[in-house]
């Protein structure tokens, strides 16, 4: 099944995979494919977004996503302003909307937001004229991570259609798993969740994924395996007896990886807990594409900025 790329993104914002059509995803991936080349030039910068301003509003800790956005913004020649929760007025009690109104007074063209609350980017998008890009909201979505994961897989297999992708680990608290499952199923891939029952999401139906309570059967015939980090900060207490036990049943070890298809990709959105969800031998092995994911993340974020820069007013919607 060939998915025809769209010619334009319908919305001024990119707040979730849920609101994207398969053709729009195809357009984003195709655009990223061409933008990868910018990183290989002697001068890694193009003037496309000259004069445009991007506000990076990070209300939750992030290193790689924030850096990745910043590199993407700078390679497209946009001006960047960084706000993080520890240094901004948010710690002084200002609400998201007051912060947003103040930011809009500085006339940014884009707001990249990471927020601990589900739906914060969506609500922000409704009140500002800037394009809002979701860099992770609560346990809801992390659309740019899902796009870069899909991009990485597509670069190895040529297409996502018909592939089987395992997502293993803390699915319930993971916006990465949610966005990935939504995206992969839209693009014709099959998704398998593997986790202890306490870490599986409550409503799996919406995500069109099969659930497995053991890693081994999920791995059989898999084309790619995404290991998720055990997120201590989103759990009041551990939902499994011990780290050791988690490793024994769910860590991706060389022996378990052999159950997947030969040459299956090993992926991790980072940061990794080596020796908890993934063995070092696997993380650093031939099948690992973990560092490619980081490189591809910059190209995907450039593609989003480039495409959103084209349709910033209401007249672009529906064209």
């Amino acid at each position: 099944m060939g998915i025809e790329p769209a010619t334009v993104l319908a919305s001024k914002d990119l707040v979730g995979i849920a609101g994207l059509e398969a053709g729009e995803i195809q357009l984003l991936l195709d655009t990223a494919e061409q933008l990868l080349e910018v990183a290989r030039r002697p001068i890694k910068k193009v003037p496309t977004l000259r004069g445009m301003t991007v506000v990076n509003l990070f209300m939750e800790p992030s290193t790689r996503t924030r850096f990745s956005f910043e590199v993407a913004e700078k390679r497209l020649s946009a001006d960047t302003l960084n706000f993080s929760s520890s240094t901004s007025s948010v710690t002084k009690g200002e609400t998201l909307f007051d912060t947003a109104r103040n930011l809009m007074a500085m006339a940014p063209d884009f707001i990249v937001i990471r927020h601990p609350n589900t739906g914060a980017p969506h609500r922000l998008a409704n009140v500002v004229t800037a394009s809002v890009i979701n860099a992770g909201d609560g346990s809801n979505e992390h659309p740019t991570q899902a796009l870069l994961d899909a991009f990485t897989i597509r670069r190895h297999f040529g297409s996502l259609d018909g592939l089987t992708v395992v997502i293993a680990g803390d699915i319930r608290h993971s916006r990465v798993a949610r966005s990935n499952a939504l995206l992969l199923s839209k693009m014709g891939a099959k998704v398998r969740f593997a986790a202890p029952a306490s870490l599986l999401p409550v409503q799996v139906d919406e995500l069109k994924a099969e659930s497995y309570l053991r890693l081994e059967p999920a791995l059989e015939g898999a084309d790619a395996v995404m290991m998720l980090r055990i997120q201590m900060e989103r759990q009041k207490k551990l939902n499994f007896p011990s780290m050791r036990e988690y490793y024994d049943f769910f860590a991706l070890t060389p022996e378990r990886l052999r159950l997947a298809k030969e040459g299956a990709l090993v992926m991790h959105p980072g940061p990794m807990n080596r020796g908890v969800e993934i063995d070092s031998e696997v993380a650093d092995g031939d099948q690992s594409v973990i560092l490619e994911q980081v490189t591809n993340g910059v190209a995907i974020r450039m593609a989003i900025l480039y495409l959103l820069a084209g349709g910033r007013s209401e007249s672009a919607a529906g064209s």
Binding site: V8, L35, E37, M52, A309, G310, R312, S313
Partner: peptide, 16 residues
Amino acid sequence: VGPWRPAHSQPVLKRT
């Protein structure tokens, strides 16, 4: 391409 021109669909990028 840039903030001064009206909304449009961005040109499809091709290989350099």
